[in-house]
Amino acid sequence: MPHRKSLALVWRRREQRYKMVGTRCATCDGHFFPPRGFCPNCRRKGRIEEKEMAGTGKVFSYTTVYAPLEGFEELAPYVMAIVQLDEGPRLTAMLCDVEPEDVEIDMPIRAVFRKISEDGKSGIIHYGYKFRPNKK
């Protein structure tokens, strides 16, 4: 049986999952995603505010998953990447709309809203960001 996530947890994180709402420190202009409530650079002098990330960036590194996690079997083989956002933060995310052999380091990408997983056939559907190639 796939791992069931807490409804409350999913609901609390909808702003960051749906819209990539992170935070920014007004003192040093550092950006944080997932959001941080405290600036590790400015510490007590930090002034944290909400900031929606633009969703654009590039592939910092990646790996192709052939032995998928439970609940992701249909998607295999899929590419997990360390994404470097234009604002600075790095995060782990799945790439979509691209074949594994076409992925390259430094490839421009942008966030899109996709189905991430579902708690079985009768459970809640989890939505959030994935990244796809951003070629004009």
């Binding site: 249909e74 998607l75 979509c96 709309d97 899109v112 809203f113 996709r114 189905k115 991430i116 559907i125 939505y127 994935k130």
Partner: peptide, 12 residues
């Protein structure tokens, strides 16, 4: 796509 449905299409 495997991760697309009416909701994701509507959002885009």
């Amino acid at each position: 796509g495997l991760d697309e449905d009416t909701i994701t299409i509507s959002v885009q």
